[in-house]
Write a protein that binds this DNA or RNA. Sequence first.
DNA 1: AATGAATGAGAGTTCATTCAT
DNA 2: GATGAATGAACTCTCATTCAT
Lengths: 225, 225, 225, 225
Amino acid sequence: MNDRSSRRTFKQRQKEACLAVLVEAAETVIYREGYHQAHMQQIAREAGCAAGTLYLYFKSKEELYQAMVTRHTEAITDQLRVAMATKRDPVEQLKAKTVSLLDYFNRHRAYFRVSFTEAPGGRADIKSNLRDRALKAYLEFKKHELATIKRAQKQGLLRTDLPAEELVEFVHGTTASTLARWSAQTSPPRPAAQLRYLWGFLQAGLGIRNEKESGTRNGKGNGHR
Amino acid sequence: MNDRSSRRTFKQRQKEACLAVLVEAAETVIYREGYHQAHMQQIAREAGCAAGTLYLYFKSKEELYQAMVTRHTEAITDQLRVAMATKRDPVEQLKAKTVSLLDYFNRHRAYFRVSFTEAPGGRADIKSNLRDRALKAYLEFKKHELATIKRAQKQGLLRTDLPAEELVEFVHGTTASTLARWSAQTSPPRPAAQLRYLWGFLQAGLGIRNEKESGTRNGKGNGHR
Amino acid sequence: MNDRSSRRTFKQRQKEACLAVLVEAAETVIYREGYHQAHMQQIAREAGCAAGTLYLYFKSKEELYQAMVTRHTEAITDQLRVAMATKRDPVEQLKAKTVSLLDYFNRHRAYFRVSFTEAPGGRADIKSNLRDRALKAYLEFKKHELATIKRAQKQGLLRTDLPAEELVEFVHGTTASTLARWSAQTSPPRPAAQLRYLWGFLQAGLGIRNEKESGTRNGKGNGHR
Amino acid sequence: MNDRSSRRTFKQRQKEACLAVLVEAAETVIYREGYHQAHMQQIAREAGCAAGTLYLYFKSKEELYQAMVTRHTEAITDQLRVAMATKRDPVEQLKAKTVSLLDYFNRHRAYFRVSFTEAPGGRADIKSNLRDRALKAYLEFKKHELATIKRAQKQGLLRTDLPAEELVEFVHGTTASTLARWSAQTSPPRPAAQLRYLWGFLQAGLGIRNEKESGTRNGKGNGHR
DNA sequence: AATGAATGAGAGTTCATTCAT
DNA sequence: GATGAATGAACTCTCATTCAT
């Protein structure tokens, strides 16, 4: 039994490694060509295998695309959760999340651009493009963020004239649209400017009061004058 | 001569009517199926004509799509310009523009959804999807809006810590992303809620000072606590 | 009756004029574009009428093409017959025919090129491309030429080791191939050289003896040295 | 290594066999229907494969056609060169070439008919229809033939009143036109008659002096000096 | 008679998917 | 398990022909 289970584990790992290679190849090609212009032959060539091999691991092109989305969604939510865990103050958690997301964004612009513009089904919002595990991961993270926002509202750190649910939507919508814009530009703002920009608007939209303690605040009084 | 010119006008109108019918048919089908799944045959059937007829009016599928984009872009900018002209105060102009845009949006959700997600070239931002007349109309309107924002800044009605150019980008980005989100939802907010929502965030992001009547102002004694 | 018949004659002439215009337009376009790339719309535009009008005069594109072939075939055979009638000696008749044909060729290269390379049915030899009146005109002329050759043979002016029928075929084949070649060249030989060249080979192939009497002979003794 | 190279050879051969099958199928259908009426579907059916398969081997219909032309051009020039190499006397070489060409012609009438009448580009002369390898093979062979003719002229076996270049053109033009004519006839002359006929005229045109056995000379001495 | 917008069958070509090896 | 040649349905676009005006 020990023998069997360790062998299975090895095979599992092997399979996972294969999946990762194929998904990365797909991402590379789709980033370069766009979803519809990315052909299975090209993806296979990029991955160093035959076209038929792709179908041993994925039922269809669409499923290969979903695997790519799932992989990123899980990676993102994992990373953001970790980032939020480094802070106690809910507003700082939200900011840390934003920092971390921008970090991910800058390392994976390929993905953002494609997911915002070339989704095979053709949906514009985040949620509609997610399936199964990706959707689950996304919704769980959103719940987590909602709780954080509610906590912040209770502590009087955020505007309360809108329900927390709507604020979460605002954060995601604004963030998504901003990243979509940047992902499509040939030269988006540099990371430092990105944070100032995005967090500035989130701050404003969420009605975040003066962060007296913040070291990244860019002026006394508040952001807008 | 009178005779000739009136006859030409009739023909022109007839042709324009045809174009409108075909573009509307294209919009209907593309909305239902997405750009890549919308076939010329289906569009023709929807329009009540043969597939070949489409090619009497448009050189290619892409051009048919661009005609649809141009038509809407010009209609939108015309309508927004009119709406802005009804007010004198720059902030009120911006608000009137938002109201008018939401009005257009609710009457043409098809277009927004498609243009945000299915553009044949696959670009995420507004500008990259526009060609020729559409691009010209869009840029001219943006210039107009930029002037309005600069005027508002001079009058101390908006934040001045960011250049007007960036504020315009913010307004367009936030608006686009919000509309993109709503256009993809099966049941987006009702018009009344839409305005409160979108204008609320624009107001916050632009750092608009107390409007006399506003209950959502973020200054002291303000909406969020 | 006088009244009626004169009116009919006028109408007939009108119709013939129309046919001529349309055939000429077809020739122009087909020469420029080739048969398959010449579209009925273009031909109509060239003729200054609508596409539908072509079908009032010709049942199909193929028939329009045949009309063009017929027109030229009749014009050529008429002209050649006249040219031959100016001489009494059979060899001189054959030479006069060649001169006249080259004259026609140089005034209508369009037609030769097309008829040799773009015939809709795709036949290489002269006869296969002719229908009805054109075929009749061609065969009649050939019969006339055959008689001339036979006469020349009887007078001992031509080789007699091959039957006259084969010599006619040789003359037509060599002439056709030569004109086909020249019609396809951007710069074929000048008329003077053409005659020397083509007649030179016909002379040789037909086994024409020294033309002591010929006034067009270009050297004493004979053509080749 | 032995293993590898033999396997590659096998694959190469397999591919070449496929190409040959497809080209032959194309030839069959094009011969039957003509180039423009020969559809890729029919060619595929003739070859016993799917339409898409053709595109694994040829980029387009035009390229498939060119492959057919190249294949024949190379086969012809190879065969003719071999035939010429069997003789030492230049005139006999030219005659052997003609014999060999007629042999090829009778085994591949399909090709001649099509190439003379249905070339996609629509040119009448040989050269204009050749691309790349085919053109190269043709030009090289022509150079070879030119040398042969020059040699014959030096030995006083051919007329010298025309430059060798023009004589080559005459040979090719006359041969091409003759084969074009025969290829289009339902019952062309039998091989024996073909040679007598074609060589007879070439002989005359080239001013070939009495061959000892020749019965086709038409006069004592001869026509040209 | 003349028009020319409309037709629609059918062309060449593509590419996700399959399956014999 | 891996292959990649083969598939064939489905695409966009063309153009000779028709027919209501």
